[in-house]
């Protein structure tokens, strides 16, 4: 196995393509182990490893301190992981994009009741808001649960409760609108 030492980095930076190849090959198992530990899903891990290696490859010349390869590779991996959560890997991403509802089967978009979003946001408890923000940042519920040191079931229960509260608020709003709008 090739050493990840600073001399190898310097040689790669100076144009030694074989050295660069060995360096990237030496990084590959580290990245694979890291992403597998954090993501676990093999197809995604393959993509993450490959894209991180591309980041390292493209940025290697800019690495001013060859003895900082670990920090350099770590940042590349962490940036890549954020891209992953952000949805750059959307082809494989199973997350639903809430900006694009899949359908409007009942034609409710034209029903005339517009959501008072500010009011709706107020129904979220701080805990529920954290969960939804993490979800919108792209984190799966299982990872949200791990981050919040709770169970996935508990996280999902919070989401369901938030949804239920939102429904109740909306019901109240609809009743209020109906009460003040004789034409409806």
């Amino acid at each position: 196995m090739h050493s990840l030492d600073p001399q190898a980095v310097v040689r790669a930076q100076q144009g030694d393509e074989a050295e660069r190849g060995r360096l990237l090959a030496a990084l590959e198992p580290v990245l694979r182990a890291f992403f597998k530990a954090r993501i676990g899903r093999v197809p995604d891990v393959d993509d993450l490893v490959q894209n991180t290696l591309i980041r390292v490859h493209r940025g290697l010349e800019a690495l001013q301190k060859p003895n900082r390869l670990k920090a350099f590779a770590m940042k590349a991996a962490l940036f890549e992981l954020q891209d992953f959560y952000r949805g750059r890997y959307s082809a494989r991403e199973s997350l639903y994009d809430p900006d694009i509802p899949p359908s409007d089967p009942a034609g409710v978009g034209s029903a005339g009741l517009r959501l008072d979003l500010e009011r709706a946001m107020e129904v979220l408890t701080p805990h529920a808001r954290r969960i939804i923000e993490l979800r919108e940042m792209g984190y799966p519920y299982a990872e949200i649960a791990e981050t919040l040191e709770t169970t996935e079931a508990a996280v999902k229960m919070q989401v369901k409760r938030a949804f239920e509260r939102l429904r109740n608020v909306l019901s109240a709003l609809v009743l209020a609108i109906l009460a003040t709008s004789p034409s409806l």
Partner: peptide, 23 residues
């Protein structure tokens, strides 16, 4: 289910709007 139940679809539209607002 949403196609058959307008209330369900309404609730879902509101929910996705809220999520989109957070995003």
């Amino acid at each position: 289910a949403m196609e058959a139940n307008p209330a369900l679809a309404e609730a879902f539209a509101r929910w996705t709007s809220l999520r989109a607002a957070v995003r």
